[in-house]
Design a protein around this nucleic acid. Structure first.
Lengths: 318, 318
DNA sequence: AGAATTTACGCGGTCCGTAACCATG
DNA sequence: CATGGTTACGGACCGCGTAAATTCT
């Protein structure tokens, strides 16, 4: 059993169980990967694929199990090569990041700017997705870093580094009564139609829990995956928006009134996560440092606050 | 890069950096493993070994790092083979367990008895060691399961399954005043010379903390790694012993008086742990079930109490 | 000088590629 | 019959073993 068998196995499932396509992807011919599978199955002593005649259609339970191990082993091989590259070409390579809309638009830009100037040789790839997709992508080694507020701490394979904390604000058209109210309470928010994030996004869990815990029910008339949609409909007069405070941009959003809500909701903690067992290139670790410094450090009026650094075992218990 | 390179790498460090001995162990000749190392270093682009002339003397920092990944990859290979064996010969194989003296003597015997009768074909190997050694052995894939009360939950690579909880008792010669005292308090225990476990063993951490927290200092005249030594010196009249209640055996220890101390100390939780990323043979998982059932279930007068099953993510936060 | 590792070289196995054969839609 | 997979077979490569050269103890 050698890594080449694992390469054929993973290529096969990654290309719709087509031996020929997998072979092409591996720069081999069909019979070669056929043989790899055959050898694997004979050495293991169990069928890995379900077959319809000669055609492979899916994985057996064992195959599923084994695929998982094979992927990990290959990933470790990549880690080993990565260690080497950190020697040969410390300042060049690829950094793949997955994050959510809010992070990508409002938090990452200055970080990216600083990173690309210090590492002009690094090919930076940013993917956008839902928190669930980020976790998926990270554990499948489709990206190196995942950045968001939800879901990252749940997965045992991920190391999640807390970077900064943030809270919410309400935005409304300039003359909206909510902006003049003396005491801004949850009840007050419930008096108006609300626009905020969909479930699974940007702290929506804590948002709903807070109302539920207070025994009041907000009237959410629109849920959006990203802040721009919320702003748009607030400008349309559909309701008042509750967004991450850091997504309110003075200058750009001066046509909207804004009031802080951090006294009403729990703080959210945005984290950057990576799979524990993988080697992170030096520049990837540096990216995390830059991210923490940039978000934790300056720009106080965006209410990005630094967050106490924590040790790994604390993070695990989140 | 193939698994064979990793095999040579690990064999080399496991045999004192002697290429010839490593080769012998791999059923190869010296030049073969020399070549493996050469190929590895060339593909990675960094030296893995520090050399004195032609002789290898140790690992570079990178080598250390890479060794770690290589070991994991090989371990995954073993897991893949293990999946297969669970098909071919479900009821035969090897189960390697590491545990402490207390568990081995007082808790495991009935579990072992049941296991070997249900799996007579399984080669059961039990190693004894300190809690630190158990963790070491588990993460290095030297054993399959580690059973003890300390240290297991700390290591991120280990999944620790809580199995039962226990507390302490005091043992003393028959006419000792401690046995007649109305209220058994920490202060009362401090009035006499104490014999108990050494640090890092059988809940000694919580033991000391409890006294420290109460602001009293016990007079520990002897610390032993196992219960039998403690009993011996209690019989000698050197002092009173504080041991795990489950280590007091009615019948065998009737010449010693015993009183329960569970109102004074926190409960300890004994766990069985294994490395998360590894495949556990079916009989290994069954062993855990037997262990939990046997300890959680019957024999109430040994005060082995069942412990609420917990989900993996709870355990991780311990 | 002796033990151990590297280098050099040749053989044997095996890994892959070509080609023919077979199953399926 | 076209597409895709397996079987069969041959060649090239390379991985391993033997033997000589080299270096450190």
């Amino acid at each position: 059993m050698e890594l080449r068998h694992f390469r054929s196995l993973t290529a096969l499932v990654d290309h719709g169980f087509s031996v020929s396509r997998a072979a092409k992807h591996l720069h081999l011919v069909q019979p070669a990967v056929s043989q790899h599978i055959k050898q694997l199955e004979s050495e293991i002593g169990a069928r890995l694929f379900v077959r319809q005649g000669k055609r492979l259609t899916g994985l057996t339970d064992d195959g599923q199990q084994i695929l998982h191990y094979a992927r990990q082993a290959l990933s470790l091989g990549d880690s080993i090569l990565a260690v080497g590259r950190d020697h040969a070409e410390e300042r060049s390579g690829v950094l793949r990041i997955a994050t959510t809309h809010t992070q990508a638009c409002y938090v990452l830009p200055p970080v990216i700017r600083q990173f690309v100037t210090t590492y002009p040789e690094v090919n930076l790839q940013i993917n956008q997705g839902t928190p669930g997709e980020l976790v998926e992508a990270a554990v499948n080694d489709a990206v190196d870093l995942a950045i968001c507020t939800e879901a990252l701490s749940e997965h045992a394979a991920l190391e999640a580094i807390p970077c900064y904390r943030w809270n919410r604000c309400v935005i409304a058209p300039p003359n909206h009564p909510i902006l003049r109210k003396q005491k801004l309470t949850l009840d007050a928010l419930c008096d108006y139609p609300l626009i905020t994030y969909v479930f699974g996004f940007t702290g929506r869990g804590n948002f709903s829990d807070t109302f539920a815990h207070a025994g009041v029910s907000p009237n959410v008339v629109l849920s959006a995956a990203d802040t721009d949609v919320i702003k748009t409909y607030v400008r349309e007069g559909l309701g008042i928006g509750i967004i991450a405070r850091l997504a309110y941009q003075p200058g750009r959003d001066d046509d909207l009134g804004m009031r802080d809500l951090s006294h009403l909701f729990p703080w959210e903690i945005t984290k950057v996560a990576y799979v524990r067992s993988k080697y992170l290139r030096k520049f990837a670790r540096h990216f995390i440092d830059i991210f923490r410094a940039e978000t934790g450090g300056g720009d106080a009026d965006r209410v990005i606050e630094p967050c106490r650094p924590r040790r790994a075992d604390e993070v695990a218990g989140d």
